[in-house]
Structures are given as C-alpha cells and as structure tokens.
Amino acid sequence: MYLVVSIAILVTMILALVRALRGPTVYDRVLAVNMFGTKTVLLLAVIAFLFGRPDFLDLALAYALINLVGVLAVLEFIQNKPRKAETSNID
C-alpha cells in the first residue's frame, strides 16, 4: 500500500517537473518547485515506512522545516528584482 502511495507521489513529481520546465511565468516555476519540495517530504516519509526505516524520518522533518527558507528567498528576490512579467519558454 505504501508502494501505491509512493508511485502516486512519484507521478505527481513528474507532473510538477513538467510544470517547472514549461513555466510559463516565474510564479508557475516557483509553485512547481514548492510543490516538489512538499512531495519530497511525503515521499521520504512514505519510503521510510516502505523500507522499514522509520528512524530516518529526521530527513523528512529537515525538509519540512527548510523548504520555507527557499520560498521566502525567492519571494524577496522577485520583489526586489524589476522584471519583465513573462519569461521565455525553454522547450
């Protein structure tokens, strides 16, 4: 059952990665990265149980704490850097 959940999370990671690659705005990319971060927390927690290593949950905890730092840095960057609203696509 953990396997099913982890596959669902992995598929969602692909979808988020596609969104990060396609953009089109910077905010979409930041959104995808943020989503990727929370999905990583969930994936690590689920895999810790799947492989029977619940003592490795510390890692998921570290990510849960640290993700916000990156997002706030991006927010501060976006606010300060004058920009053209849209960025180019990369595919």
């Binding site: 953009g23 990265v33 990369i90």
Partner: peptide
C-alpha cells in the same frame, strides 16, 4: 538548456531534492 538564470536556480533546487531522495533510497541518510 535554459538561458534564464532564475529558471536555472529553480531547477537546481529540484535537482537537489531529487538527489536527496536518491541518497535516501540508497540508505545514505
């Protein structure tokens, strides 16, 4: 591929998340 450095930074952060999951799966906590 990308020439936009901001996009590159965002993708680098995804790269790091993937890398950590990989290490985790290989038991390198």
């Amino acid at each position: 591929q990308t020439t936009n450095l901001f996009v590159a930074v965002m993708l680098t952060s995804i790269f790091s998340l993937l890398m950590a999951s990989n290490f985790f799966i290989l038991d390198a906590a």
